[in-house]
Design a protein around this nucleic acid. Structure first.
Lengths: 157, 157
DNA sequence: AGCATCTGGTTGCATACACAACTACATTGG
DNA sequence: CCAATGTAGTTGTGTATGCAACCAGATGCT
């Protein structure tokens, strides 16, 4: 994060800048909202909750340290604690102590969680396809992937 | 919003699809977070609050009906009520009745609100430039504007 | 060993938001 | 003209989230 500089000059946007920025915000809002509504309607899960289950599913033995998850999902540590609370209450996840580190906790998928994440994954994929990719032609998809990759490259040293 | 279809088939993502989607989410999260932090640090305003002030500033006589604002900002009507409450408490906005419609209310910028929005606008512009545009070359900016415009065209008949 | 410090995770508190119910005014149809 | 219905905005309630304070276990320094 760059340090805060004084707003010396800030010329108004050009036409295409406005389209690039406002469009970005609008598309994001629309797609994430549609996706979230669909996930809630079909599985009673927020996208955040789904992502936690998904990362667990992808992990070795379907288990991850709390801090590992928090790093991947866009969620603070306290937020993750409560999210996992909810998933435990729903029966999709259990907590278990890490044998090597007395402080650490694993979150681990239950049988029910495993089944849930498998169907939810299909819904989620379908949603992203319908709400996002189906509105982009192949050229646009390639261009976007390329643009974001270069955009984010700056952050990782 | 299209009706919910059964997730018949949902093939996993290709490499570039993943980059286009994940990158989109990551860039959005990063930019909006940086922007929000900057606006809070320099003016004590969330980006949502700033946007309300900005729309008022742009409007005729610096006043708008509540529902007008709610439509432009991404905020529910109740959310807007409380946001305007806050702005009134901060002294940037006043409420006044609409003469033609006994139900309606206008939110109107105060002198202080006018001054605030003028400096906040510079900060915001600078932030969007620094956190977003400075990381995109001109070609990318044009491409993005074009992509979003076509993406959103479907929605408006 | 023993104290200071660090790290992983949870809890208390405050904030921000949406949905649904509600109030007050407007509009429309008989 | 007045009842039914519609519309603008607010309030009650619940949920999601972050920050800061906290606890417990680990690590490091002397």
């Amino acid at each position: 994060m760059p340090s805060i500089a004084p707003p010396l000059d800030s010329p108004p946007w050009t036409e295409h800048e406005l389209a690039a920025w406002r469009g970005f915000l609008q598309v994001h809002a629309g797609v994430t909202q549609a996706l979230d509504a669909q996930m809630r309607a079909e599985h009673g899960l927020s996208v955040s909750a789904y992502e936690v289950l998904m990362f667990l599913d992808d992990a070795q033995d379907h288990r991850l340290r709390m801090s590992e998850i928090a790093g991947r999902v866009l969620l603070s540590r306290s937020g993750l604690t409560r999210m996992v609370d909810r998933l435990v209450r729903l029966g999709y996840v259990t907590r278990c102590a890490a044998e090597s580190d007395g402080r650490g906790l694993f979150a681990e998928l239950t049988e029910a969680g495993l089944e849930m994440v498998q169907v939810a994954r299909l819904t989620h994929r379908g949603g992203v396809r319908r709400f996002f990719f189906d509105r982009l032609n192949t050229t646009d998809q390639l261009a976007l992937g390329d643009i974001w990759t270069r955009f984010l490259e700056v952050d990782r040293p």
